[in-house]
C-alpha cells in the first residue's frame, strides 16, 4: 500500500532548491502537491530548505552534489527514479554567480565556471531526466534565464551569455520534446530580493535600485516561485518554448 501510494505521488526535482529563490520554489511546488527533491551544493542550506518544507506540511528530501559533473548528476537522477519511480517536473534553478570582470580581464577559468554552473548544469540535468519522462509520455521542465539574457550587462559577459544560451537551449529542447508530451519553458527573473543578491548592496543603494524598476521594488523570491509553479502546472499546458519574465516591468522584451 505504502509503496503504491509513493509511486502515485508526483515528484519534482529542483536543482538549486536550497537557494534564495529555490527554497520558495520548493514550497510552491509542495503546495501544489509535489514531493520535492532538492539538488544543491550546500548541505546546510539543503537542511534548512527541507526543514522549511516540513514546517509547511510538505514532503521532500535532498541530495548534495556538484551539478556540473555528469557522473554525479546521472547517479543522482538514477537514485531518485529508483526511490520514487517517476519524475514529473524538473526545475533548473542552480547557478547565478555575481562575479564581475571587464572583458579584457576576464579569466578563462572564471568564464568557464559561469557557463558551467548556469548552462552545463541545466543541460546535464535535462539530459538525465528526459528518458524517464519520455517513457511516461509526460513532464514539465522549467529552466532559469534572467533579464540579463535579453539586455546584456557590462562586466557580466559570461553570465549574460549563459542566460541567453539557456533561452535558446530551452526553445530547442521544447521542439525536441513536444512530440513526447514534455513541455520546456523558461523563467526569467529580474532583480530579486535574495540574501545573496542584497548582500552586494548597502541598504540605500538597494532602495535606489528598486525605485528604478517600474513597480518600484525588486521581486520577492516567492513571486518568482509562483511563476515557476505556473509553468510546471497544467494551467500552462499549451505553452512550450516560452520565456516568462517576472521583473516588475524592468525589461519588456
Amino acid at each position: 500500500m505504502a509503496e503504491s501510494a509513493a509511486l502515485t505521488r508526483r515528484v519534482a526535482v529542483v536543482n538549486g532548491g536550497a537557494g534564495g529563490i529555490g527554497q520558495e520554489v520548493v514550497l510552491a511546488l509542495a503546495r501544489d502537491g509535489f514531493h520535492v527533491v532538492i539538488l544543491d551544493v550546500s548541505e546546510t542550506a539543503c537542511q534548512e530548505a527541507v526543514a522549511r518544507l516540513a514546517q509547511a506540511g510538505g514532503t521532500g528530501e535532498y541530495r548534495v552534489l556538484d551539478l556540473t559533473r555528469k557522473p554525479l548528476v546521472a547517479e543522482a537522477f538514477a537514485g531518485i527514479r529508483a526511490a520514487h519511480g517517476r519524475i514529473d517536473a524538473l526545475v533548473n534553478l542552480a547557478g547565478g554567480t555575481l562575479h564581475q570582470h571587464p572583458i579584457q580581464e576576464f579569466p578563462l577559468a572564471e568564464w568557464q565556471r559561469v557557463i558551467d554552473v548556469n548552462l552545463k548544469a541545466t543541460f546535464l540535468c535535462c539530459q538525465a531526466v528526459i528518458p524517464g519522462m519520455k517513457a511516461r509520455g509526460m513532464g514539465a521542465i522549467v529552466n532559469t534565464a534572467s533579464n540579463y539574457g535579453v539586455t546584456g550587462g557590462a562586466r557580466r559577459t559570461a553570465y549574460a551569455a549563459s542566460k541567453a544560451a539557456i533561452m535558446a537551449f530551452s526553445k530547442s529542447l521544447a521542439l525536441e520534446l513536444a512530440p513526447h508530451g514534455i513541455r520546456v519553458n523558461t523563467i526569467a527573473p529580474g532583480r530579486t530580493a535574495t540574501a545573496r543578491v542584497m548582500g552586494n548592496y548597502d541598504p540605500e543603494e538597494w532602495e535606489a535600485k528598486g525605485s528604478e524598476i517600474p513597480m518600484g521594488r525588486a521581486a520577492e523570491p516567492a513571486e518568482i516561485a509562483d511563476g515557476v509553479a505556473f509553468l510546471v502546472s497544467d494551467a500552462s499546458g499549451y505553452m512550450t518554448g516560452q520565456t516568462l519574465h517576472v521583473n516588475g516591468g524592468m525589461v519588456l522584451p
Partner: peptide, 28 residues
C-alpha cells in the same frame, strides 16, 4: 490558465510581458 495566472495573486509581479499560448509554434 494563463489568464488566471496573470489576473490572480500568483501573477502580481509580472507586467508588460507577452505570453505565447500556442503549443510552441512561435517561441518567444
Amino acid at each position: 490558465g494563463p489568464v488566471l495566472f496573470l489576473a490572480s495573486h500568483a501573477g502580481r509581479f509580472v507586467t508588460g510581458q507577452t505570453l505565447l499560448v500556442n503549443g510552441g509554434t512561435v517561441r518567444w
